[in-house]
């Protein structure tokens, strides 16, 4: 969808045309759901967060002023909805690691153990997820914009209201902080430990 098409679709949706809004949902659901999944780490939460984000978008459609692309706006709503869900689920389970139930959502029969590769992929995502959630909010936002949403420096600068140079230096510091969290959490190897060993150690309980 080009920017001009997007404008007219939004204008129609603002007038209450729910089919126009449906076009927006179709256009953006993949990105919204992916961000929600990478943030919440569960299909169920990702679905809830995506639904919340789109509904909030619909409810606030009238206040959308075309100052940014819809995608950027939707990302912010998705991020907020995901964080709300994470905060809620944290009350129930201290560490939002995938449970057995979530593990079984991998598309494999119950009686067969999940392929090692799939387990490892899930663990790696979980480790990144934990590290990202541990970052302070400013660093987390810029990491999300660049690493999760692949936003351009110009768009990030616009969203944060700073110069592009500032974006780059902030991003460098945020990456550094993220790498330190990752190293501390231990799923990813530096030079000395084998990545595979660490992966197995983390995965023992679930296998």
């Amino acid at each position: 969808m080009t920017a001009a098409q997007e404008r007219s679709v939004i204008a129609a949706a603002q007038r209450g045309d729910d089919q126009a809004f449906e076009l927006l949902v179709r256009e953006h659901q993949k990105n919204v759901y992916n961000l929600a999944f990478k943030l919440t780490g569960s299909e169920e939460d990702a679905l809830d967060a995506s639904q919340d984000a789109f509904l909030r978008a619909f409810q606030n459609l009238k206040s959308f002023r075309f100052e940014s692309r819809v995608s950027v706006w939707l990302y912010r709503l998705t991020y907020n909805a995901s964080m709300d869900i994470i905060k809620k689920s944290r009350r129930g389970r201290i560490v939002p690691l995938p449970t057995d139930e979530e593990g079984s959502e991998l598309d494999i029969p119950d009686d067969a153990p999940p392929p090692e590769e799939a387990v490892q992929r899930r663990e790696e995502l979980e480790s990144v997820r934990r590290a990202v959630l541990e970052l302070d909010p400013d660093k987390r936002r810029i990491i999300l914009m660049r690493e999760y949403q692949n936003m351009s420096y110009t768009a990030i600068a616009q969203a944060l209201g700073v110069e592009e140079g500032t974006v780059k230096s902030r991003l460098a510091r945020a990456r550094m902080a993220l790498a330190e969290k990752l190293k501390k959490n231990g799923t990813f190897s530096g030079e000395t430990q084998s990545n595979k060993q660490m992966g197995k150690k983390e995965g023992r309980d679930r296998m």
Binding site: E124, G190, N195
Partner: peptide, 18 residues
């Protein structure tokens, strides 16, 4: 740190279908 970061980027480099 570099090794961790590269692996993290790899871990995020996937797409799920809604």
């Amino acid at each position: 740190l570099y090794a961790c970061l590269v692996q993290a980027r790899g871990a995020l480099d996937f797409q799920v279908t809604p």
